[in-house]
């Protein structure tokens, strides 16, 4: 593997009972990149992310993060290793306050002063979360919940951020805001593996992309080339 690859997924196969969800998937993410995974519903995009964060057990294949095999770690150990996963549907803890959600994002850390500083940094980045600091997360709007989910993931100071459908169900203006945040994050040095149904917007903000069809990678390359690719245009860009 190359020195600067952060994540190397090789030959990943995942089964749900008798159904093969992923077959021999190989994906590389280099340090500092945004890599997008596009594909239809049920193609296995979320499954790929869930395998990396160890929410499910792959049948075979290896997942290397910074040169270490993480395919046998527990989900909480993956977070400790430096990977944060913003799951599909945001999954904020609705019965906890915004602030409690954010503090839980830093659960693996013990540097209390730096945590306070990061909390303020998130409030600066997402002023609406500051306004709603003491509110229960369940009372936030969809866009605010997505921001909270991203901010919460950042509280663990991840080196690799897995983002699952961050634009799902959000108004276009909020989607643009989310993507501008993703660009900022990447510029500040966070490597991102992004799963998106909004393929155009995702590829425009990515270095490279992979196309997943029925559990297999069918196409990969620089994002610019994928946007121009006839097959991608027909299937995903409309």
């Amino acid at each position: 593997m190359s020195a600067q690859s952060v994540l190397e997924i090789r030959g990943l196969t995942v089964n749900y009972g008798a159904i093969q969800a992923l077959k021999d998937v190989t994906i590389t993410v280099h340090a500092g990149e945004v890599v997008t995974l596009i594909g239809a519903n049920g193609a296995g995009k979320s499954t790929t992310l869930r395998a990396v964060s160890r929410l499910l057990n792959p049948r075979s294949g290896s997942i290397q993060y910074q040169g270490k095999d993480i395919a046998r770690l527990r989900a909480d150990e993956v977070v400790r290793a430096g990977i944060a996963h913003v799951p599909e549907g945001r999954r904020v803890l609705a019965r906890l306050t915004v602030e409690d959600n954010l503090r839980l994002g830093a659960f693996v850390r013990t540097d209390n002063e730096a945590i306070e500083a990061d909390l303020q940094a998130q409030f600066k980045r997402f002023p609406r979360l500051l306004e709603r600091r003491k509110q229960l997360a369940g009372t936030l709007s969809g866009g605010e919940q997505q921001m909270l989910a991203i901010a919460r993931a950042l509280m663990s100071r991840p080196q690799l951020l897995l983002l699952d459908e961050p634009s799902l169900g959000l108004a276009p203006i909020i989607v643009r805001e989310i993507f501008s945040i993703i660009r900022d994050l990447n510029q500040s040095g966070v490597t991102i593996l992004l799963v998106e149904q909004n393929a155009t917007l995702a590829l425009k903000n990515s270095a490279r992309g992979y196309v997943l069809e029925a559990g297999q990678i069918t196409l990969e390359g620089p994002a610019g080339a994928l946007i121009e690719d006839e097959r991608v245009r027909r299937a995903y860009l409309g």
């Binding site: 527990r74 977070v79 799951p87 999954r91 803890l93 019965r95 906890l96 409690d100 839980l104």
Partner: peptide, 18 residues
């Protein structure tokens, strides 16, 4: 706080490193 998180959603809690 972690206990309250797990009581609401164990999967999400594990994604937070709990």
């Amino acid at each position: 706080r972690a206990l309250r998180a797990v009581s609401e959603d164990a999967t999400t809690s594990s994604l937070l490193g709990i």
